[in-house]
Design a protein around this nucleic acid. Structure first.
Lengths: 202, 202
DNA sequence: TCTTATGGTAAACAATCGTTCACCTATATG
DNA sequence: CATATAGGTGAACGATTGTTTACCATAAGA
């Protein structure tokens, strides 16, 4: 529902906010789009606002870029959803399952826009330095390699384990001698790959 | 070298940036300071710029707040120094020892302004889920309690260990059976307390 | 073919922007 | 006392702000 030109403008606004810290003026946008009239920008902005991509307040530089959930996009930060439960089918990030929105700096995410957070339960990964209560940053993907720490869906519950593939045989390996490997007959599916760990002490 | 009134204005600008995402206009600042003339604000801004607290570019809302090191202060983020080495005496955070500035969201720091980061070397804390290469968030303090994970200076080198005090006897305990406890005769001093751990995988 | 949606030019508009000027009022310091 | 400094009033200035209007060009659909 958004045209190529509108997307172009939105991209520029986001880039400008990230780079300079403040949103651009209409004139600056016109210059960036190589357009001589401010009205051309005004029409694009009107369309973007109608579709809920931006919010305007009429004052100088008074443009806020909203993400797909209507939250403000700010310089250097991204809001990342902390999921309570991970649903079995369909898209992983559903508002229903979002417990909280956590701000993370862009440098953490390296440009990825689709990551989510998950709070670790249990002690099955203490050998890999992942403790109960830790937040893991997860990049949704099904393409994982041996040695990756992954988030898998096991018996309708999200679990963090190490992924291993030997001779075409794929299994999940807990990093704790108390637990046993999980083999394919247990019905599990990889949902994503852990790309970061965050722990708050005290 | 900064007056009370100037500090008041600086505080408002920072608060406004954090709250709304964009810096205030001169008129908005005048209203906030309950002042009728924009010139009053202009003079305060001139003084703040002279002292290096802000930077102006003349355009609408073109004010950047700079931190004590001249870096831009942005909404929701703080720049935290990653230290290469930890000096024995004097203030811990010296520009000389700063390897890099890392952006962390305010929610991580819980309002603390004096924390720093340290990259962990070695495997002496794997039992506590702290691996080689992890970044630890450190709050500088000498007041620590049994069980706290601390940063200590041992033989002129920074080390991360667990702090234990039993019957008035204080020692450092590595969380790895390969290493032995470190007792007072080894000459060590607590520099701070670990309040967070960050790991980037992949 | 007619109509609609999208994007553009050019000009004008009032409102707001930051800056500057002359002048005033305390307060502290010599 | 004289003087410098910090902070303030009020007005004016030109530049920039976002918005609006009238008109044009192109492409897609009915």
């Amino acid at each position: 529902m958004i045209t190529r030109r509108q997307k172009e403008l939105l991209g520029y606004i986001i880039a400008a906010v990230q780079a300079k810290g403040i949103p651009p003026t209409v004139s600056e946008m016109a210059k960036a789009l190589k357009v001589r009239s401010k009205n051309a920008v005004a029409k694009l902005l009107y369309a973007l606002e109608e579709e809920g991509y931006v919010k305007r307040d009429g004052t100088a530089r008074g443009i806020q870029v909203l993400d797909e959930f209507g939250n403000e996009v700010r310089a250097g930060i991204q809001s990342v959803p902390l999921l309570g439960t991970v649903p079995a089918g369909g898209p992983i990030i559903v508002e229903q399952h979002v417990e909280e929105w956590v701000n993370l700096p862009n440098s953490f995410l390296r440009g990825r826009k689709d990551v989510f957070l998950l709070q670790v339960r249990g002690d099955s990964m203490i050998g890999a330095g992942i403790l109960e209560g830790d937040l893991v940053i997860v990049k949704p993907t099904r393409e994982v390699r041996t040695g990756d720490i992954v988030v898998a869906l096991l018996h309708d519950e999200a679990t963090v384990k190490r992924f291993v593939e030997i001779n075409g045989r794929r299994y999940l390996k807990p990093e704790n001698p108390k637990y046993q490997n999980i083999y394919p007959n247990d019905e599990w599916s990889v949902q994503g790959k852990v790309v970061g760990v965050i722990r708050q002490l005290e």
